[in-house]
């Protein structure tokens, strides 16, 4: 999974005096030993709004590669989401495979928007049925055995 491909080398955290604010670590991804690494910088954003994130997920056509519920499509499943919020933001800024998933600048997609999308993905119900419990898939499994 995406989260497993990232090695966090440096992370600074700070405590904000603004109530309700979160500290996220947006990253600059470099390469060390062939693995993407994240150098940290601190950004403070409010909590994500799942409904706004749902609209952004559509407007930015995230569904194109990941499906409307983050479960289908040609690219990694986002439901259930295995990235932390800071890892999610860092991934957008410096994805390890930009030919597949291009980097998105702060000017194009703000940290706030990314946190909203993150909140949306976290809000999605997760629990696709097991293949054995789906009759048509179960029958295909029996054909193979």
């Amino acid at each position: 999974m995406i989260a497993m491909t990232m090695t966090r080398t440096r992370r600074t955290t700070s405590v904000l005096s603004v109530a309700g604010a979160l500290v996220i670590v947006a990253g600059v991804v470099g390469t060390r030993g062939g693995e993407p690494t994240i150098a940290a910088q601190e950004l403070a954003v409010p909590e994500g709004d799942a409904e706004r994130g749902r609209l952004l997920f559509t407007d930015y056509t995230c569904f194109g590669c990941h499906g409307y519920t983050g479960e289908t499509g040609r690219d990694p499943r986002l439901n259930p989401l295995r990235l932390s919020q800071d890892g999610f933001v860092a991934y957008f800024r410096n994805p390890p495979n930009p030919r597949r998933m291009p980097p998105y600048r702060q000017a194009d997609v703000s940290d706030q928007k990314l946190v909203d999308v993150y909140a949306f993905l976290r809000s999605l119900p997760s629990g696709s049925p097991e293949a054995e419990s789906i009759p048509v898939l179960s029958d295909i499994l029996k054909e193979i055995r």
């Binding site: 499906g67 409307y68 519920t69 479960e71 289908t72 499943r77 696709s128 049925p129 097991e130 293949a131 789906i134 898939l137 295909i140 499994l141």
Partner: peptide, 10 residues
């Protein structure tokens, strides 16, 4: 088949 189950009811 293991992948096809994802989003089955989507």
């Amino acid at each position: 088949i293991a992948t096809a189950r994802y989003g089955w009811d989507a």
